[in-house]
């Protein structure tokens, strides 16, 4: 009998779509129950949102002032305690899930399966290693709680609307540490679509040349209604903030359309986009490795091609 606890991720009072993706992975285990755990200082709207996700059996909430910000040291003991009744604990493999989940696993004294791409059985999973250059099948110890993070790009968000799971407040008797304090978030928030869930993404690399030049990428993205991404080189050079980085150490995304502009296609970048539907590459170097995986390649100077593209788009 398996029962899965999915840890909800949220920001500014809104559920992150990564939560519904983790639910999809949980449902793939074919468990008896999938419960979502919401830890926040204000749970009502988050819980109501989570209750609508298809496949969710119950929503459990822990409302505490200490849960206002996602501090792993504060959340992990609560999750570990709540996990007692479950065979599996799943969280999205976002920076939130990557931070907190191993802490939960260690408190439970068990290993963690990172970045679950597919569920083979209740204890067998596939996950990427070496920047996605190899896919391994791993078996977790059946007598242990399975603690896993879910590679969000591998899973569609479970749809929402039809369900109305019951919401229950959970009373957890845990003392929380005070050694870790939240100071602030400098958010790269914009009105553009969110990079991790957008259906179209336009990314720029070192070839864009400067922060000022990057406007050309933003303009094209706006015209297409796309999110903006970047290579590590573009972030390191200060063209755009770090939360736009796509790749092994940035965001792993799966948009329907990905346009890589002035990006060479290093393996660490490609690992972030291999689940994209259609990849377009624009690069002045016809030998750039990005063309090996692009569905549509166009060789030329991006500063000439982008204005032409905008014109062709009408």
């Amino acid at each position: 009998m398996s029962k899965i606890l999915v840890i909800a991720e949220h920001l500014d009072g809104k559920l992150n779509s990564s939560t519904a993706r983790a639910v999809s992975a949980a449902v793939a285990v074919k468990p008896d129950a999938v419960d979502v755990l919401v830890l926040a200082d204000n749970v009502a709207t988050l819980a109501a949102e989570a209750a609508k996700i298809d496949g969710v059996s119950r929503v459990l909430t822990v409302e505490r002032a200490e849960n206002a910000h996602p501090l792993a040291a504060v959340l992990a003991p609560q999750i570990a305690k709540a996990a007692a009744d479950y065979s599996h604990v799943f969280a999205p493999s976002t920076t939130f899930g990557k931070d907190v989940t191993p802490r939960v696993a260690a408190l439970l004294g068990v290993a963690q399966v990172s970045d679950v791409m597919s569920v083979e059985s209740a204890h067998t999973f596939k996950r990427p290693i070496y920047a996605g250059n190899a896919i391994v099948t791993v078996e977790a110890e059946p007598s242990h709680t399975v603690v896993a993070t879910v590679r969000t790009a591998s899973w569609p968000a479970a749809s929402a609307g039809a369900n109305s799971a019951p919401v229950e407040a959970l009373a957890l008797d845990v003392t929380l540490p005070s050694h870790t304090r939240y100071v602030g978030l400098q958010s790269g928030k914009s009105d553009r679509p969110d990079l991790q869930s957008a259906s179209k993404v336009v990314s720029g690399g070192r070839g864009v040349g400067s922060k000022e030049n990057f406007d050309i990428i933003f303009k094209l993205a706006d015209k297409l209604g796309a999110a903006v991404g970047a290579s590590r080189a573009a972030v390191d050079a200060g063209y755009v903030p770090s939360d736009l980085q796509v790749g092994q150490t940035g965001k792993i995304i799966a948009p329907e359309l990905y346009m890589a502009i002035g990006i060479s296609g290093a393996i660490q970048h490609l690992t972030g986009i291999k689940d994209a539907g259609t990849i377009v590459a624009i690069n002045k170097d016809g030998e750039a490795p990005i063309f090996e995986i692009a569905d549509f390649g166009l060789v030329g100077d991006l500063f000439k091609i982008i204005p032409e593209l905008e014109q062709a788009l009408g």
Binding site: G132, V136, V138, E139, A140, F291, D295, A312
Partner: peptide, 21 residues
């Protein structure tokens, strides 16, 4: 964790080159 199998990732195949915007 027991690793029981290693596989190469699914390859994306090379697409087509277009001539202009």
């Amino acid at each position: 964790l027991k690793t029981t199998h290693y596989a190469a990732p699914a390859k994306r195949s090379k697409g087509v080159m277009v001539k202009d915007a």
